[in-house]
Design a protein around this nucleic acid. Structure first.
Lengths: 203, 203
DNA sequence: CGATACATGTAACCGGTTACATGATTTT
DNA sequence: AAAATCATGTAACCGGTTACATGTATCG
């Protein structure tokens, strides 16, 4: 019976395997060389996670060099895995998500256009922008009420939290704008392509 | 033998017990009602953590209602606990800290003035400001190199990371400024106090 | 040939999550 | 008296961390 809530690391692995089939080591390198490393590298977490995903039927491992002492496994996503990935990526963003699980939200954001397309990415961003705006309002109220009673650095630490969310919100507004522009560009290219004989490539 | 690296939750509990002796429930409530909840509330983590801290001799538990079926324990910090707390708070900030452990850094910041005083808080902020500036430069370089090859939302997600660090840095600059002002005010008050007969209270 | 990077794993440990259990006090 | 809230805990589960073990390919 598949676990109800896969870990962030498992989702990240699923999404990376969706981009292209990769070996365990190739996956590790992604975590080791990009800010994705926040979702934890180290063989001790990745190889067991890959095993779990394979056992659940979300990844399939093509074994290269089956006879040798060190067979290499290259992981690809399965239809069931893609289902799970899409389910994860298309879940609506809740107030709890932005309050407690921004790491998960941003990981989802990083892959949403890849898997679900530009329109879904745009919807995701709009949702996110709204949820962030609401959370900033709430946090600001909390700050106004609590700041007076707090010692200097405690207050500053709280202010930092508020400002991080404000920055994240400004970013979300820009993300919406950029994705809209992208969509417009894609539509224009599409129309030009159909009108003029598919001269502009879609990718 | 005490663990080498206490968890964030343990440090948070130590710091809160340092502010004033508190019961397990009172501590839980702090986590449940403030953004400190990010360091995890829930009895299943807090009570065992308090047990560990008491076993290590960093907290001492004053038992109220010893005979009853539900004795209450009020935790205070011990000299050994204060040692540990000071050691944690006075550790220099490294590049790794800002890259991988900003949650720990900000938790330390929130308590540093409380435990070590304003001067230490100011030094901490200056360090932090410098480390953040360096990290922003590094991240910006990475972004410039990687952005071109990335899909839209992946690039935007990365940009979000850069902007979060930039916002954190701007905050740090302001924190330094505010703490300097605070120190100046404290010194002035002190001088006025000594000159005019301790009329202005230090706290 | 030896060092280094590539590549894959295992196992012990630990702490956080979730869910459950229970008693005391206050409110309706 | 029932319900809600205050208050304290326990136990199973799970996954990430750390450290270790080992084999393969490449390069100077």
């Amino acid at each position: 019976m598949p676990r109800a809530v896969p870990s962030l690391l498992e989702h990240a692995l699923l999404a990376l395997a969706h981009q292209e089939p990769r070996s365990g080591y190739a996956l590790r390198r992604v975590f080791a060389t990009t800010p994705m490393g926040h979702y934890s590298d180290s063989p001790g977490s990745i190889y067991p996670a890959l095993d779990r995903l394979a056992r659940r039927g979300w990844l399939s491992a093509a074994v290269h060099g089956a006879g040798s002492l060190r067979p290499r496994r290259v992981f690809s996503i399965t239809p069931a895995g893609l289902d799970q990935l899409e389910k994860w990526l298309s879940a609506r963003i809740t107030a709890d998500d932005v309050m407690w699980r921004m790491d998960d939200v941003m990981l989802r954001f990083a892959f949403v256009a890849d898997v679900l397309g530009l329109a879904a990415a745009l919807a995701f961003s709009c949702d996110l922008e709204g949820a962030l705006a609401a959370h900033v309002r709430q946090l600001t109220r909390f700050y106004a009420a609590a700041a007076r009673a707090m010692p200097v650095t405690g207050r500053l630490a709280l202010a930092s939290g508020v400002e991080m969310y404000e920055a994240q919100h400004r970013w979300a507004v820009r993300a919406v704008r950029e994705l809209r522009a992208h969509e417009r560009a894609a539509r224009t290219a599409d129309r030009a392509g159909r009108a003029g004989g598919a001269r502009v490539p879609r990718r």
